[in-house]
Simulated assay, not measured.
Amino acid sequence: MVKTHKIPVSVLVVIYASDQQVLLLERADHPGYWQSVTGSCDPGENLRQTAVREVREETGLDAEKYTLTDWNLQFEFEIFEEWRHRYAPGVTRNTEHVFGLELPQPFPVTLEPREHLNFQWLPCGEAEKKVFSWTNAAALEKLPGIVKVV
């Protein structure tokens, strides 16, 4: 089997309900680390396709049934040392593109157990404080300006 390296371009998908509750997932490889849906692009995929695939893989939700929006927001960050082996030699930085997926209300999700241990819905401000990634916190900070509470 040929080892393929991850592409250093990824998506972060903030899944939220119209009342601004946010879905967070607990990483299986780091219990206690909470995040939104994330994932790297596969070869030949555009960013939207990656977002739809990652949402389906990590939550069981069909992003195409709801409002998936490209927030036209991106972050570049240094890849954690422990995960660099997944990338080509010398690759140390990743560009992450932010999407939002609005659901009418919080739903239970079906987790991919190799990736996530648990999920929870939290008010946006609490979610922003709970995520481990600065890019995830920065994206959540934008949510109140993107969606108005109904």
Rank of each mutant, 00 (worst) to 15 (best):
T4G: 00
T4K: 12
H5C: 03
I7M: 01
I7W: 07
I7D: 01
P8A: 07
V9F: 00
V9C: 04
V11L: 00
V14E: 09
Q20T: 08
Q20A: 12
Q21V: 01
V22F: 08
L23Q: 12
L23G: 07
L23D: 09
L24T: 14
L25E: 01
L25R: 08
E26A: 10
R27L: 10
A28V: 02
H30I: 09
H30F: 13
P31A: 06
Y33I: 00
W34A: 05
V37R: 10
T38S: 13
S40R: 01
C41H: 00
D42V: 02
D42G: 03
G44I: 11
T50M: 10
T50P: 03
E54H: 13
R56D: 04
E58I: 03
A63K: 02
A63S: 03
K65H: 07
T67C: 10
T67A: 11
T67E: 14
D70V: 02
N72K: 13
E76C: 07
F77E: 14
E78F: 03
F80W: 11
E82M: 07
W83F: 12
H85E: 09
R86Y: 05
A88Y: 00
R93W: 09
N94C: 13
T95Q: 05
T95N: 00
H97F: 02
H97D: 00
F99H: 02
L101E: 03
E102L: 15
E102V: 14
Q105M: 10
F107L: 15
F107N: 04
F107A: 01
T110A: 10
L111Q: 05
L111K: 04
H116G: 03
H116P: 12
L117Q: 07
N118R: 15
N118Q: 15
F119C: 06
W121F: 08
W121Q: 04
L122D: 04
C124I: 12
G125W: 05
G125V: 07
G125H: 14
A127R: 04
A127H: 07
E128R: 15
K129I: 10
K129G: 11
K130L: 15
V131D: 02
V131I: 06
V131W: 09
F132I: 03
F132N: 09
W134I: 14
W134T: 14
W134F: 15
W134L: 13
T135E: 11
T135W: 09
A137E: 11
A138H: 14
L140Q: 06
L140G: 10
P144N: 01
K148R: 15
V150R: 15
